[in-house]
Design a protein around this nucleic acid. Structure first.
Length: 560
RNA sequence: UCCCCGGUAGUGUAAUGGUAGCACCACAGAUUCUGGAUCUGUUUGUGGGGGUUCAAAUCCUCCCUGGGGAACCA
């Protein structure tokens, strides 16, 4: 793609570069759109050009001003700026009308009285017949194709002024009804539709079609390169036809493949149903691939941009592993996120030889990757919470956390040795772990150079802050959610365990004042972001992505 | 069926007639107060057949295979 742009520059075909992002304001932006946004803005930037934002709002039915605002917010959040170059195709309606008149005068457009069903039949559309072989014959000319220029002009003016019912007439380009590319078989330019438009109201009852509107809008803005997804490839001859016949600024359309991500659905229809059926909590549910959802999940604009630059641009239909996106987030947050200690599934630990009632303050590093981040003080006493997973009896092979008789280091604390446990007599579940600590190991150092293999995280019980923590998994267990067995409703394939709420978690004291949007690494657990649901006394955290967990791999291997 | 576009390690992406490279994943080791991070190393690839050429991922041809189109949506 960049090569194509470069060659246009080198050959003098275009001076400078101007691209555009043309969303239709009828839905929420998702990660697939983010790819397009990154491409159009980055390509422009790479060649010292600019990118326009243009709302492709020529279908009044589903468009709304609320989407305009949401789209603008999401693009800005992603880190891109269109300055004052904010345009609307609906501002070009008068210009587009004039261009249609021009085509009529050149004998290249005509008013057609065929119904939509008849139009389809005349075009040669094969009837969608399940397992039958269908045949696409050459199209037939409409009986109205050879109206005079004067009559067409008159009828088109009548269409605009509201003389005809919705759907009664269309304006069509006169190209070639036998063209092998069905897009070229006299495409519809204008249709009659009495539907108030969110911007122009009821001032128009005819609306231009995409194929006609897009090249002309590009021309109006002096777009040098109209970058779009593969599905428009087949429309390119038509795009060029309008440029040639309307004699306007020649933009070049170049296509690239859409983004697909494993375990993720991006179709508008699917996302809408997930929301409408209450499978997710809304468009910004942290499991949603919308930019709003990713933001709430804790994805950063930087990580998404990094992801886009890593997957590249090509014309191959691809399915990108969601793990690459996760990798990009981890990479950034590892460098930048302050560390904190939190216990998701607490297990009480008592240090029997700790001086009763004593509380010490211990120093903890805020970010080992960033010395400038400094350190903080953590309270420590004889009663702590540790992660339930960090104690096992009997221990599985290669397990080097806590079990009776074994020693571990409490991160930034002391080395402790497990002396015994208390069990729930009814369930046999471990309720309390007893340990002795070694006073010589304060801060976690071992003066005798003994090697303690395990280091676990903890929270001092009396000062612990109660947290709600939400864990997420793929919304779809299938790599390709679209591959649903015949007869199965895809909604039934949604991963029931994609969201897990842990209401009994505890965090270190500093977490009490976390602000929504703030990102932390909870040591040994993953990266978490403070959710907007947070209230004064009760922080809520979403796990954005877990840390790489090589123990989980060992465990899995052992089970196999 | 017709028309259009693709096919390079598991995934994604380079190489535009001249040594098939990079990243992620995976695996192994080193190191480590996060089983994190970091470092080192390893495995794996041009869909298939034929042709042109001193030389083919690249050009030609046939086949296989994936995607898109056949809206008065964009």
């Amino acid at each position: 793609m960049r090569e194509a742009v470069r060659s246009d520059l080198d050959s003098g075909r275009s001076q400078g570069v101007r691209t555009r992002f043309p969303p239709e304001p009828n839905g929420w932006l998702h990660i697939g759109h983010a790819k397009a946004i990154c491409i159009v803005f980055e390509v422009a930037k790479d060649f010292g050009g600019v990118c326009n934002l243009r709302f492709d709002d020529t279908n009044p039915e589903a468009e709304d001003i609320a989407y305009v605002e949401a789209i603008k917010r999401d693009i800005r959040w992603l880190g891109y700026d269109w300055a004052d170059r904010e345009f609307y195709a609906s501002d070009y309606y008068e210009y587009l009308f004039d261009m249609a008149v021009k085509l009529i005068k050149k004998g290249l457009a005509y008013v057609d009285d065929l119904s939509d069903e008849e139009t389809r039949q005349y075009r040669g559309t094969a009837v969608p017949d399940k397992n039958n072989i269908t045949f696409t014959p050459p199209g037939r000319n409409s009986p109205w194709r050879d109206r005079s220029v004067a009559e067409n002009l008159d009828l088109f003016a009548g269409m605009r002024s509201g003389e005809f019912a919705d759907g009664a007439k269309t304006l069509r380009a006169k190209i070639d009804m036998a063209h092998p590319n069905l897009v070229m078989r006299d495409p519809v330019l204008y249709r009659i539709r009495r539907e108030p438009h969110y911007r122009v109201g009821s001032s128009w009852c005819i609306y231009p079609m995409y194929d006609f509107q897009h090249p002309l809008s590009d021309a109006k803005e002096g777009i040098t390169h109209s970058l779009c997804s593969l599905e428009y490839e087949i429309h390119r001859p038509l795009y060029d036809w309008f440029i040639r016949e309307c004699e306007v600024f020649p933009s070049r359309q170049i296509e690239f493949a859409r983004l697909n991500v494993t375990h993720t659905a991006l179709s508008k229809r699917w996302l809408l149903r997930l929301v409408q059926d209450g499978v997710v909590s809304g468009w910004d549910d942290p499991r949603m691939p919308t930019l709003a959802g990713l933001r709430r999940r804790g994805y950063t604009p930087e990580s998404i941009r990094e992801f886009m630059s890593r997957i590249g641009i090509a014309k191959t239909n691809s399915l990108v592993d969601v793990q690459l996106l996760e990798y990009c987030l981890r990479e950034q947050l590892n460098r930048e996120a302050p560390r904190a200690m939190a216990v998701l599934k607490p297990l009480k630990l008592v240090i029997d030889n700790w001086p009763a009632g004593q509380v010490e303050m211990l120093e903890a590093v805020n970010n080992p990757e960033d010395p400038a981040a400094g350190s903080r003080q953590l309270p420590f006493c004889g009663e702590l919470y540790i992660e339930r997973d960090d104690f096992q009896d009997p221990p599985p092979p290669k397990y080097f956390r806590l079990f009776p008789g074994n020693s571990v280091r409490l991160r930034y604390g002391y080395i402790i040795t497990c002396t015994g446990v208390e069990l729930d007599p009814a369930t046999g579940e471990v309720t309390v772990v007893h340990c002795d600590y070694d006073p010589a190991t304060r801060g976690g150092n071992a003066p005798d150079n003994r090697k303690v293999k395990g280091t676990i995280h903890w929270v001092s019980a009396p000062q612990a802050v109660p947290l709600e923590v939400r864990l997420f998994d793929h919304l779809f267990e299938n790599e390709r959610p679209q591959d649903v067995p015949a007869g199965v409703d895809w909604l039934k394939t949604v991963n029931p365990a994609s969201r897990q709420v842990l209401a009994g978690a505890f965090g270190e004291p500093g977490l009490a004042v976390a602000q929504p949007g703030a990102a932390f690494q909870f040591e040994r657990l993953g990266y978490f972001v403070c959710d907007p649901d947070t209230t004064a006394g009760r922080p809520v955290f979403n796990r954005s992505v877990s840390l790489k967990d090589s123990w989980a791999k060992i465990e899995k291997k052992q089970q196999a």
